[in-house]
Simulated scan of single mutants.
Amino acid sequence: MTKTNPGSFFEDFNLHQRIDHATPRTVTSGDQALYTALYGSRFAVQSSDFFASSIGYRHAPIDDLLTFHIVFGKTVPDISLNAIANLGYADCQFLGPVYPGDTLMAESQVIGLKENSNGKTGTVYVRTIGINQRDDEVLSYVRWVMVRKRDERAAAPEAFVPQLPKRVEPSALGRDCPVIDPALWDNDWSGSPHRFGDYAAGEKIDHVDGMTVEEAEHQLATRLYQNTAKVHFNQFSEAQGRFGRRLIYGGHVISLARALSFNGLGNAFHIAAINGGRHVAPLFAGGTVFAWSEILESADVPGRSDVGALRILTRATRDLPCPEFPVVDGTPDTPGVILELDYWALMPR
């Protein structure tokens, strides 16, 4: 019996299987500083204890996506160590703020399985819950991932694809955001004069700036999240794979797009939920990421007069500036859209 973990293959998963993931991770201000160094995020609430506490937070919380990536990273050794690609996300809700000093843990349940037509891989659907040291749920999300089969001749489990909501309802938003004081929100400090009422459905925003990804950066990020997927950091094995090089973690693209969105959405200080997301095409080191966003909806948050919610669809591109607001062109071998992320963000009124 081997003492090492070879990771799970598609035929190892069972519907309704529950998995407790190792290892607990205490999040520190150092993690937040490294996250900022990797992506350059400038949102004031996560950048400044003074700003955050002045509007109603205890102090500056950990960036929402840093919380997501750490919880996600916990799941990789058990779910996606042998993955070919992470395919998408749905019904992601941020349920409680995470502060430096909190410890994050993760548990998952398999909610769907479907073998792919090639018989070599299958898609695994899991719901993951992130909890803190007080057993409070801070994050819940569904993702689906393409996983290799160990034995192509192995019988596939009965197919079951879960029905997932197209969006998180506005009534479920804002549980992890304390009541803030919009009168104390300083637009000069936050970097934007535009608040909730200044945006409308149908509006499109080119975030203008681009950020080139270096090989060392995306590997630092992957290790920061303790994400052990070999496709992201093992060039020895990936040189023999379908791309011939390391694939950048899709969450890295999400964080880059979110950081770039500051230019145009500077007061969208909190991601309350992710309705859905898909990685349209891969990204490799040397590619330059651009982004643009479309406002899909503007919604009241029930019981809240301090903030409103914008439903935003952000698209990230590879080597393609976005003044023309590019969408998926169906040609994966040409520069184009690499990410579509549909999410709710809170903004002061």
Rank of each mutant, 00 (worst) to 15 (best):
P61G: 05
Y343K: 13
A44L: 06
I62N: 02
F243R: 12
Q240R: 13
R25E: 01
D319Y: 11
L139W: 05
T128F: 01
M1A: 14
A229T: 06
Y199P: 00
F72R: 00
G174D: 06
Y343H: 14
N118H: 06
G197C: 09
T75D: 10
D20N: 12
N267P: 05
I248Q: 00
A183V: 06
L220Q: 10
S190E: 09
V126H: 01
E11C: 11
V231W: 00
V124E: 04
H252D: 08
A239I: 06
N227Y: 07
G73P: 03
N267A: 08
N116V: 00
Q235H: 11
P6M: 14
P335F: 05
P100L: 05
H218V: 02
C322E: 08
C322V: 07
H252C: 10
A229D: 05
S192F: 02
D176S: 15
G276C: 08
Y141M: 11
L164V: 04
V301L: 11
W189M: 11
N82A: 08
T222I: 08
A60V: 03
R278D: 02
W185D: 01
W144K: 02
A106T: 08
D198T: 09
M105Q: 09
I55D: 00
E203W: 03
G286N: 07
I274G: 06
P282S: 07
D78K: 07
T128H: 04
N132M: 10
M105K: 08
R223T: 13
I295S: 02
Y99T: 12
A83D: 03
N116D: 12
S41W: 00
E115H: 03
V231T: 10
S29A: 15
A172S: 12
S47P: 00
G210K: 00
D49S: 12
R42Q: 13
L346W: 06
S261H: 03
G266Y: 03
A285Y: 07
L283Y: 00
A272G: 14
Q235N: 06
A268D: 03
S237F: 12
G101T: 12
G303I: 13
T123P: 02
D300M: 09
K3S: 15
E297N: 13
Q46R: 03
Y249G: 01
E324K: 14
R134V: 10
F243M: 11
N263P: 05
I248L: 15
Y141G: 02
P335K: 03
L65F: 13
T23W: 13
V145W: 01
M1R: 07
G241I: 03
N14C: 10
